[in-house]
């Protein structure tokens, strides 16, 4: 499938990796629908894409809502008449330990509450499910060639302090195998599914953090720097145009290793 002339929907397209993916597709001739929770971010990215001559719409929506998912799929079809690429970048973190112990007594003093668990599952897992489900529905009913892209994370391996996030991201990483297995059984051959699992990426979430902590993180990255959002976008672009990549989740980490040298 060629990027040029295709229609791409990107959730979380108002900043970070999603913004880079949206701009990458627009620069390469795709029509782009940007979905985000923040209207100001949408307005900024849509204007920047318009300024480079791109074809674009922006839709404020909550990916955890079935009604709002239906809204942004419908808007994409109304604007561009078809849908070929759906990239589920919308994601949040609410880090914390499952249990915290009192240093003196050794007893549990605090538990991770549902206020930290549920939003992360809702956005990162349920939101991805709804986006890919409804995008696939449109692609199947429209008969268009398509690619579904759940965004996982290298922390799908299981990151301490991220039981909510890692649990959602490992599920996202598994989706391509389940979805393509289902499509094969149903005789649906026009849609592929490829997950992307970035490592530490130079989004504002990381570049704005304590620089000493950031330096410590980079010690474990073989290339010695953060992955750039544009590099993640380019990988997704390659997945669009290479029809053999399917039913898998690709990592792009710069060689992220455990401190003992074993690559994650």
């Amino acid at each position: 499938m060629q990027i040029k002339g295709s229609v791409a929907l990107i959730t979380g397209g108002g900043n970070g990796i999603g913004e880079a993916v949206a701009k990458f597709f627009a620069k390469h001739g795709a029509k782009v629908a940007i979905v985000d929770m923040e209207q100001k971010n949408i307005d900024r990215v849509v204007k920047e894409i318009k300024d480079i001559g791109g074809e674009v719409i922006g839709i404020q929506a909550n990916v955890t809502s079935e009604a709002e998912t239906a809204k942004f799929i419908k808007a994409t079809l109304e604007a561009f008449g078809k849908l070929n690429i759906a990239v589920s970048c919308a994601g949040i973190i609410r880090d914390g330990m499952m249990l915290s112990l009192d240093k003196e007594t050794g007893k549990v003093s605090r538990k991770m509450g549902l206020d930290k668990w549920q939003p992360v599952i809702d956005v990162n897992l349920t939101g991805t499910f709804l986006t890919l489900r409804d995008a696939a529905e449109a692609m199947i009913n429209g008969g268009w060639e398509g690619l579904l892209v759940p965004i996982s994370s290298v922390n799908k391996v299981g990151q301490v302090g991220q039981i909510n996030y890692s649990s959602a991201k490992v599920a996202d990483a598994l989706m391509p195998k389940i979805i393509i297995g289902e499509f094969l059984m149903r005789g649906i051959r026009n849609i592929r599914c490829v997950g992307i699992a970035p490592g530490y990426t130079a989004t504002t979430m990381l570049t704005g953090m304590n620089q000493d902590v950031l330096k410590a993180l980079l010690k474990d990255v073989h290339i010695g720097r953060l992955v750039e959002p544009d590099e993640v976008a380019a990988l997704i672009g390659h997945c669009v145009e290479n029809g053999a990549i399917n039913a898998t989740t690709l990592e792009i980490t710069g060689g992220l290793c455990y401190p003992n040298g074993i690559a994650k």
């Binding site: 209207q39 791109g54 074809e55 922006g58």
Partner: peptide, 21 residues
Amino acid sequence: STWDITRKLPNGDFAVVGAGL
């Protein structure tokens, strides 16, 4: 040959809803 849609913001500026449509 294409259409742009803008939305007026409370401060009087315009935000792009869609471009190249």
